[in-house]
């Protein structure tokens, strides 16, 4: 039987760069991105898929990096906050003071980016549905939502 080891050499595409890396099969993408690739914008929070602080985009879809094995991510385009070239959302967050301590911000920004890309006609209910995936301990939800609405309005 092939692939009987508990770890393997895999190739991940992270922020448009190909990375060859040895991982344990049970290693989460959160661990690989932070500890092996040094991408510290992927913030660990609950490690349980509850808080959204480690959100990354897998082929443009928000996924909690703590809830995906690195071996599962082979063959997909992974984007972390370090790979976000479009600065519209970060600038809007700053303008609206949609950041306080900033810890949840990378996750919120990537989720918001995916929302704007995938659902440019999002109404209030859709924005709420997307943003409820992320927790802000400083409770800056209103400012974050305003930022997203502003971006969507500009694009319409």
């Amino acid at each position: 039987m092939e692939n009987i080891e508990t770890g393997q050499l895999i190739k991940l595409t992270v922020n448009e760069q190909s990375k060859e890396i040895y991982v344990r099969n049970s290693e989460t993408l959160l661990h690989t991105l932070r500890e092996k690739l040094g991408l510290m914008g992927v913030k660990p929070g609950c490690y349980n898929g509850d808080c959204g602080s480690c959100t990354v985009l897998i082929d443009g879809i928000p996924i909690n990096a703590c809830h995906i094995l690195s071996v599962e991510a082979v063959g997909y385009q992974i984007m972390t906050i370090e790979g976000l070239k479009d600065q519209t959302i970060p600038e809007e967050f700053i303008k609206n003071w949609a950041i306080q301590c900033g810890y949840c911000t990378p996750g919120f920004i990537l989720n918001s980016y995916a929302l704007v890309q995938n659902n440019p006609d999002a109404d209030d209910a859709a924005i709420d549905e997307w943003l409820e995936s992320n927790i802000c301990r400083c409770t800056g939800y209103q400012e974050i939502k305003e930022s997203v609405k502003n971006i969507l309005n500009v694009k319409r």
Binding site: M1, N3, I4, E5, T6, G7, Q8, R24, N25, S26, E27, T28, H31, Y47, L69, V71
Partner: peptide, 25 residues
């Protein structure tokens, strides 16, 4: 961090999945 190790298999066909399961068990 998951404190255990396991094998990971990703078959492309139903029959392969069943065969892998039978071999592992």
């Amino acid at each position: 961090m998951i404190p255990i190790d396991f094998e990971y298999h990703r078959p492309k066909a139903i029959t392969d999945a069943i065969k892998i399961y039978q071999a592992l068990t």
